[in-house]
Design a protein around this nucleic acid. Structure first.
Lengths: 236, 236
DNA sequence: TGCCCACCTAGCCATATGGACAGGTAACAG
DNA sequence: CTGTTACCTGTCCATATGGCTAGGTGGGCA
């Protein structure tokens, strides 16, 4: 599927590329998106030290990312999925960008590791996934050039995680729905099923139904653990 | 790697300067401690841009911080409390440093905000507390010089939090004990009271007792919320 | 010595929760 | 039209949980 396009881009350079605007000798143009200044400056400093890479813009919100991609048409987008209070939004953003700008490769630079999010991201066209806490300084530049070449980059442990996820029991399609997430957030705030029911205008039965589904999807059977896993997964 | 060495050479090293002492015109010597490279490089880049500030060393573990303070005797330590898997350890470190090196001011650069941790840190001699996600680039340099002058620096919202904590119902001494933390972690893993009891060799009654105390101390009454708050407080 | 504190235990009771059953609806895609 | 998906509802039952009162222990400290 996409692989054709990717190797295509690397293989022969097309001088007439409409949005590409990059010659064989120009640098990899990077857009850095993170809500945290320190991270932005850090990533910028690291990448500017790497050969063949140039940071062309920064963004701090989902909308700003779209605008910046529109304006700069970067080769690689280095982004933290969590740019607002909603990781799901970040996933949607990735999908939108891979659809509208197939040339722009996306590399996630995440704070937390979650099987759930990683697999979802991959399905939406993300080609790199690194953990802020794990990356070494020199890895980052290399990783950016690698994803630009259309190859997939995974931080240590992440690859195994995905493989495990794909090959294991849950056939991985277990998407947490909006409603379930809504319930989950209320659970984390300590509301009882009855209170949650009143809060979202459904019966207690329905709340329990959603919780059962969440239990299955997140592999838990206790709401305390549910909150813990969901937090680790960046859902809360 | 090379980065540290290089800027050590570039930043003026003066072995002749006695620990913690400095002439009126020399720069504020800073030690940056964070497990994350990106953060370290980012903070370094920001601080080196600020006038009158020089980063003299970096550290990534609790032990390395001690060593680096021993060796460099920095004026200010910019540190994330969470350098291992245990925030408590970071708090102890702060106390140790304020005792052994009273000249060295400590500024926390935290990932998460927790009334609990902030107040504890203050009691252990920390004079600054900023949130990574909140700081603006220019604030950081200013903050470092401010704490060096012995003034207290609090990120927006943190000051209010402390004031609220001190002036409110709980007369602030509500320390979470080791045993309680132990129980809390098991709760987060989804164990029932009975299982926890078996796990730590006490009766179910005792587990419930600890949970009641946790409920009071963290201001919660549902274990799901307990896990949520504890996570936000960096206890898990 | 007496006090405080972390820790441990017991019993009681109302309510919450988890798990299983067995359904119904609307929206949407092939 | 048919299948799928998210969503919703109900009933039943065993067990877990939260909240309370009322104790006992050992160690550290004034």
């Amino acid at each position: 599927m996409n692989d054709a396009v990717r190797s295509d881009q690397r293989g022969e350079i097309r001088p007439d590329v409409p949005l590409g605007r990059r010659s064989p000798h120009s640098k990899t143009r990077v857009l850095v998106a993170d809500r945290n200044v320190i991270i932005r400056i850090g990533v910028r400093a690291i990448l500017e030290r790497a050969p063949g890479v140039a940071v062309v813009a920064e963004a701090t919100t989902y909308d700003a990312v779209i605008d910046a991609v529109d304006e700069h048409g970067p080769d690689v987008l280095v982004i933290d999925l969590d740019l607002g209070d909603d990781t799901t939004r970040g996933l949607q953003l990735c999908e939108e960008i891979t659809n509208r700008y197939p040339h722009t490769k996306i590399m996630i630079l995440a704070s937390t590791l979650s099987e759930f999010v990683v697999v979802d991201a991959m399905r939406r066209g993300v080609t790199g996934y690194l953990l802020k806490d794990d990356v070494k300084a020199d890895e980052l530049g290399k990783a950016v050039r690698t994803v630009q070449d259309g190859e997939v980059v995974m931080g240590k442990g992440i690859g195994n995680l995905v493989a495990h996820s794909l090959g294991s029991h849950r056939e991985m399609g277990e998407h947490v729905t909006d409603r379930e997430l809504e319930v989950l957030k209320l659970v984390a705030r300590g509301l009882s099923n009855k209170q949650i029911a009143a809060d979202i205008y459904v019966t207690e039965s329905t709340v329990k139904f959603h919780l059962q589904n969440l239990s299955r999807k997140l592999g838990s059977h206790r709401r305390a653990e549910l909150v813990h896993k969901a937090t680790a997964a960046g859902l809360l």
